[in-house]
Amino acid sequence: MKIELNITKANMFEWARNYCFVLPAIAIFSVFYIYPFYEIFNLSLHEWNGISPNRVYIGFENFKELMQDEVWWSSLVHAGYITLIALTFQNTLAFALALACDREIKLKKFYRVVFFIPPVLSEVVVGLIWQWILHAGVQGGEQIGLLNRFLDKIGLHHMVNDWLSDPKTALTCIAVVHSWKGFGWGFIILLAGLQTIDKQLYEAARVDGATSWQSFRNVTVPMMVPVILVVVILTVLGSMQVFVLILSMVNQGLVFHTEVPVTRILVAMTGTNRFGYACAMGINFGVVLIMISLLFKIISSRMKQA
């Protein structure tokens, strides 16, 4: 009996010391996240224009209205589309580049620096450049936009388009630019992950007579699954919440075809002055993101088992 008590006491002491490791993080987090979160949730139950002294309590009305808000759900679909392109196009590119730079290759250092330029550039520059590339206008019979001019020159006149004003291409253009701007992130995280794989594992695989594909399949991929998962989660979060790029490319949007959740939230907050509704959108959006990440979690644990 006495011994047991001692163990618990020791455990308690042990735990207390372990808690000290997470305490600073939890303290900052509580003050700067949990408290505002509580306030936001509270606001989402009110009708409020952001400034008026009277906030009207309306219960879950905002959430009910949100359920029927077609534009809101389509904005989620648009963000999903951008995310899908980012997950496939951007992450494949990032992984391929990280693998290439992990090899003994000329100009390795140069590439490692250069691939990180797009994420560093401000949205202002990216917006300016892509506006110039995708410009739809004509001056003196010649296309102004680089892309259109290029298509014109190589004889593909029928492909010349109003890239950002055409519902069929606007969102794809945004997704491609977003992927271009973002692949550098995946690249360095994956590269850092590749560096932590023990070289001896590759040696062992070579000794066993594995081809480079086999060692990739049996050594690299299994070792990289957790890092890939992090990159996937970060890509999903980054792409679902993209908006500065959209503002700099299509301003307030092309009808409702380029709306994403964050632009809808901003419109509700400062455009139509429905603060409570904007907060409800934020919470709804969070729930959707949590569900998506749970899905990934399940898929990845299945993959691990397989």
Binding site: I265, M269, G282, S293
Partner: peptide
């Protein structure tokens, strides 16, 4: 809890934040 915080954006949090 930390991971979930990544998921939930707090669009209007600037008001309580400034007040606090």
């Amino acid at each position: 809890m930390f991971v979930l915080a990544l998921m939930i954006p707090l669009p209007g949090s600037f008001v309580p934040l400034v007040v606090m």
